[in-house]
Design a protein around this nucleic acid. Structure first.
Lengths: 128, 128, 128, 128
DNA sequence: GTGGTCTAGACCACG
DNA sequence: GTGGTCTAGACCACT
């Protein structure tokens, strides 16, 4: 399910966070469903439990997951805010990209064309 | 001219590199024009000369600038490859953004609309 | 293993790079094998860690080694490009030597003879 | 006559030395012929006189040229030692190249073939 | 004056 | 523990 790229420059805990957030936002992980325990996931991915713990803590503080003592860790029921926030973050990144494109004299048309290309290319597909 | 953001997670030398590359790619720095000396820029930005040196060194190995011994550092004359490379890198980033947008069920239309908005907003203006 | 020549005009970090590249290209260092930590090698060679760091950093950007965060530095698995590049670089140097030999009126035969001598002399042996 | 490459990593004075030595060794500059004065050559090449001076000094100490006070600077009459020395230096470099080629598993045959190629390619020609 | 290298020592993020 | 960044200050070669 979760793929970690050790050569990626981003820290592992961050990759974990994004991975889980993305799966939750996409509806791949339904609200209320249980996540593996820290130890379990650490064993599955052969990763230091501290790293898993860090990702879970961050996810909890973001409201993506919640912990029931003695029970386990679960995906939040209301993922609306998460989705909204991720979309907004994405749009902000897009704004930055557009700005840089303008500075490099990339035409609006070729930029939009590349977007369309990306949307059509991946339609239906589900890489990784 | 060059603004360093200390809160940015990226290292200073990397911000420097991108800043200079972008200015060169935009034609703001013409080929053959001289860059401030390592010490000068270090003083201007209140940064350690070694950090400037590192940025210059990397820029030279990328072919963006060249060094004349005892004279100084200059912008390369042929910046074509740089521009091409930067545009391509930007498009690759865009592809990633499109992919993520799809996963979040962002409609193609709203995505394109945001692009158009960005292009129109900055047209003519050049705010930081 | 690694010998630094302080009388050499080339900087230490460059000698380090070539040393490691050559060992990797020769198959002396297998893909995936771990390099000594920056601090360890610095201690071994009595060199400042920053200098080792610089060499490792350059080697990584060349794709000769890769870094796993918090774990260490490892030899890349695919060293094919490195070998090809090093051989080509060597041949280019050879071309320059041949050119200079011609200008000095060195006969082709005596040049080739010297090559043969070198090849036979070192066959099997591996002196420093 | 003399071509200086400002982007070359080697210092200018060294390029000057090799340029003049090579021309002398090749018989292009005959023994006894006069070299331009330091100021003259500095003006011709748009180079700092100090740099020319440094090259001339080194050439004199190597016995390639000699100075007659009030007259000027001249190519030595007996260039035999120079030629011998340059040839020997070239062979030493060749030995190093052969050693590196062996370490990279370059076959003796392909190495010799490249040599022959170089010799045939430049025969008669006189690049730069 | 210029860039380039090196040392020493500090601090940080990551695992 | 690992690598990565930065500062401070020194020395060098070249022009």
């Amino acid at each position: 399910m979760i793929a970690i790229d050790y050569r990626d420059r981003r820290p592992i805990y961050e990759q974990l966070i994004e991975n889980i957030e993305e799966m939750a936002a996409r509806g791949f992980l339904r609200g209320g469903s249980q996540l593996p325990s820290v130890r379990q996931m650490a064993a599955d991915l052969s990763i230091n439990p501290n790293t898993i713990q860090r990702a879970y803590s961050e996810l909890e503080s973001r409201g993506v997951i919640y912990v029931v003592k003695g029970k386990g860790t679960f995906i939040s029921d209301d993922l609306g805010p998460l989705l909204t926030k991720k979309k907004e973050g994405l749009f902000v990144e897009l704004d930055g990209l557009v700005r840089r494109a303008q500075l490099l004299s990339v035409s609006e048309e070729s930029f939009l064309e590349r977007c369309r290309l990306g949307f059509s290319k991946l339609k239906g597909g589900n890489g990784s």
